[in-house]
Amino acid sequence: MPDTPIVRIDGLNKWYGPFHALKDVSLQVAAGERLVICGPSGSGKSTLIRCINALEPFLNGRLEVAGIRLDERPASISRVREHVGMVFQHFHLFPHMSVADNCALAPVHVLGLDRRTARERAMRQLAKLRIADKADRYPAQLSGGQQQRVAIARALCLEPKVMLFDEPTSALDPEMVGEVLDSMVTLAESGMTMLVVTHEMGFARQVADRVVFMDGGAIVESAVPEHFFAHARSERAQQFLSKIIH
């Protein structure tokens, strides 16, 4: 491999009590690569990407993001988190803050930017997500699709090197899925490294460099989309695909 991977996971194991949630997972993601992670419910997709920004502690294995080795030290955790943006299924915007303040918060309090610079940065990201006109609204006044686009803008305001998405469209009304997926396609075209947990196979076909299929806490398959959709090797993946694509 010419470049060192931007995310490097080696032999990751995680338990919830006695339950072995991640089984010896290894994964390397090159800078600019777009990964779609799919698999049945409970297969460990969320757990895996939540380990990458230390929302979940892992038990053993090795995890490196942008050259930073993730360990228990708060310093290593916060450095990794500055490089990793995350978008959640349920948006989790801060409800008492305007859209612009949601976006400017981390630049001010984490990066130490002054308020004006942070606000400018927020407005730039909101404009890219085509939602700058809502900058002074509050989350409760926006539709789900708009909230999710704000959440993407908020994460981008730290100028991360990697973006994680955990089922970003699953909580949306069907008519709003498109606007969020479009934003994600645009982001992918800008060269962002993305790890996306989603069941939107159209999105996977359109932008993914690789589809990773998980089952029972392990990565079962990893292939380019055309290959994965046409000739999934494992029986579990074939079953999964037949359920999800009709």
């Binding site: 920004n53 989790h92 918060l105």
Partner: peptide, 18 residues
């Protein structure tokens, strides 16, 4: 206060005090 907000804050690298 929703646990999800705490995770969103953590993901943005805010400390628990912040």
């Amino acid at each position: 206060v929703d646990k999800g907000l705490r995770e969103a804050g953590a993901a943005l690298s805010l400390s628990s005090r912040q």
